[in-house]
Amino acid sequence: MILVALPFFMLVTCAPAGSGGARPAYPALGAKMIRGLWFALAVEAVSGIIWFWLVTAQMNDASPGAVLDAADWGTVLGQTQFGQLWLWRAAVGFLLGVTLFLRSRGKGAGFPPQLGSWLSLVFSAALLGMLAWSGHAAAGTHFRALHVFVDAMHLLLGSVWPVGLIPFCFFLRHVEKSNGVQPGAAEGEVLRRFSDLSLLAVAGLVATGIINSWLMIGSWEALVTTPYGRLLLGKIGAVGLMVVLGGFNRLYLLPRVRSGLPLFRLLRQTVLAESCLALVVLLIVAVMGMTPPPS
């Protein structure tokens, strides 16, 4: 998700604060984000291989050490939906790597940085959205197209918020280092845009979350009587706390910071607290991913 969050933040949230898109906003921060993207892509590649290996063992009902020969891997790659999806994702990951490489060489390679950034965002979004085909949504026998679409949208919106809080934290730290404790007008504009985009993402997450829950749980009763339902309630509670913190930032802190009151450090701290809650949410989501849904 961070693979989408980083280029989205630089292109959509930050870019209008630069020079009308003619050159990337915050070049120093942009360079850090590119390094972050490389690192995230490396983690994605390594974890993708381990994931494939473990799934091959799971499909063969064998231990990971027992599925090391090419025939087992070939069967999964060539004859299963998961294998086909894995190959497509590997191809998109490769294209993302090529794009990042050309992007890092810049105009000298005849490759405009902005184009590289947009392509990075497109390939990252494809890489993440395709995960929807690996889960329950693509295996279910009811409302499959709707479920896959909603799942993919939920993942992508989650990259804008709450995972977008991570580049936002980097940005706040960058501003504090560059400007001291008070942001300039351009930085104030980025804060406003992030707040607006987060609000839109939350609305989208609520909508896709409700549809997803309806498809996965199927009844109000299962929400409290099944482990999956209880995990979902925990996730909703943690997200609710995050929304309260986000609301405090948006309605109380942001207008005061933009009008010059010295509350920037407090804003940074509440965003950091929001990010910690986001980690709790992702931990719950990870457990949900291993828990069979009731329907």
Partner: peptide, 9 residues
Amino acid sequence: FTLAGFSVA
């Protein structure tokens, strides 16, 4: 946050 994407139900 990179690994978080793997948590599809």
